[in-house]
């Protein structure tokens, strides 16, 4: 069976006054049917840009310069704008980081959901409203009749995120792109939202890409993980493999930087900042922060190569023998 989403060598560049910003530089990634893939990386590593590229919503000065995005066997980059509009919302949906600003402040929240049924399912106004109330009940909003006619500012943050999720799953898309869906929420609400997402995914068989910088969330929710650094994909693995045997030096550093209270392990921050992606030099972008750096790293960009079953890494310095547990 073909994977649901297959990204090959995708590159997104932004034209800035100072030069070319290579926000996403040739990443390849697959999302299988029914799985939850975590997309991890520091701020500015290109996670959100990748998600927007899948929806073909990169706006000027940004541009998809090369690559291929196949969704369910169809090449999205070749679709007409009209066909793409149909894919958005009905096949692929997105959940945003800050639900309060992602809901239109001048429209009742129910109206924004009902619109989707009219747009993608051809429902009449009344029918769309009934289905809106249904979907709001499904995502756990009490008194949907009352809440649906309220505005975003009248709802709590958690409630707004539930509305966003209702909006995303309303038309039963096959792929959900969740861009840091729990960042603005407190821990207990965040856990509820993640449970809800997982539950909805299981029920509808939809795949999900969960964009986050929280490895704790990844460990708890995802099946597989892809790690991004400065616009490049450095490692891709099933969740157990990644936490047990992180191969790439950046991933190892990420895993080691998780604060732990149960063991006497000192937290190790990663030295240096995310390197600039403004006309970057060739080679591996982690080279300047990397403890294992060799000459080749600065000249040739490492390819993503299989290391073991369901575990790929892009690093010149990694041989299968180098892979040791991060913590022993």
């Amino acid at each position: 069976m073909t994977p649901l989403l297959e990204i090959r060598d995708l590159a997104v560049h932004f034209a800035a006054d100072e030069g070319r910003v290579e926000a996403v530089d040739g990443i390849s990634l697959t999302v299988r049917r029914g799985e939850i893939l975590g997309l991890v990386g520091e701020s500015g590593s290109g996670k959100s840009v990748t998600a927007l590229a899948v929806l073909r919503l990169i706006r000027p000065p940004g541009r998809i310069v090369r690559g291929s995005i196949r969704f369910d066997g169809r090449e999205l980059l070749d679709l007409s704008e009209e066909a793409m509009r149909h894919v958005r919302g009905s096949q692929i949906a997105m959940i945003f980081q800050s639900p309060r600003t992602a809901l239109n402040p001048v429209l009742p929240v129910g109206r924004q959901i009902a619109r989707l049924f009219e747009l993608h399912r051809g429902c009449s106004g009344h029918e769309a409203w009934q289905r809106t109330l249904e979907i709001l009940r499904l995502v756990g909003i009490p008194e949907p009749e009352r809440r649906a006619s309220q505005y975003a500012h009248q709802l709590s943050g958690g409630m707004c995120q539930r509305v966003m999720i209702a909006m995303a799953v309303a038309t039963e898309p096959r792929l959900l792109l969740a861009d840091e869906p729990t960042t603005g929420l407190d821990v207990s609400i965040a856990a509820q939202i993640l449970d809800l997402l997982r539950e909805l995914g299981r029920r509808t068989g939809a795949s999900m890409v969960l964009i986050t910088h929280d490895l704790g969330v990844v460990a708890g929710v995802c099946d597989r993980v892809a790690v991004m650094h400065a616009g490049q994909l450095v490692e891709c693995s099933d969740v157990h493999g990644l936490f047990k045997h992180p191969a790439h030096p950046y991933t190892r550093a990420l895993v080691r930087s998780i604060p732990r209270v149960d063991r006497e392990v000192t937290m190790e921050p990663i030295p240096g900042a995310v390197p600039s992606v403004l006309e970057p030099p060739p080679g591996c972008r982690y080279a300047d922060r990397c403890p294992w750096v060799i000459d080749r790293c600065r000249e040739v960009k490492p390819e993503l190569l299989p290391l073991e079953h369901d575990h790929e890494v892009a690093c010149h310095a990694v041989e299968p023998s180098n892979v040791v547990p991060a913590r022993s």
Binding site: L55, L57, R85, H86, V87, R88, G89, S90, A93, M94, F96, Q97, S98, T101, A102, L103, N104, P105, R115, L116, L119, H120, M164, M167
Partner: peptide, 14 residues
């Protein structure tokens, strides 16, 4: 540039 504009685009509005 607001997120709700982005959101309106992601669900396929004209």
């Amino acid at each position: 540039e607001m997120e709700y504009a982005e959101a309106a685009r992601t669900v396929g509005n004209r």
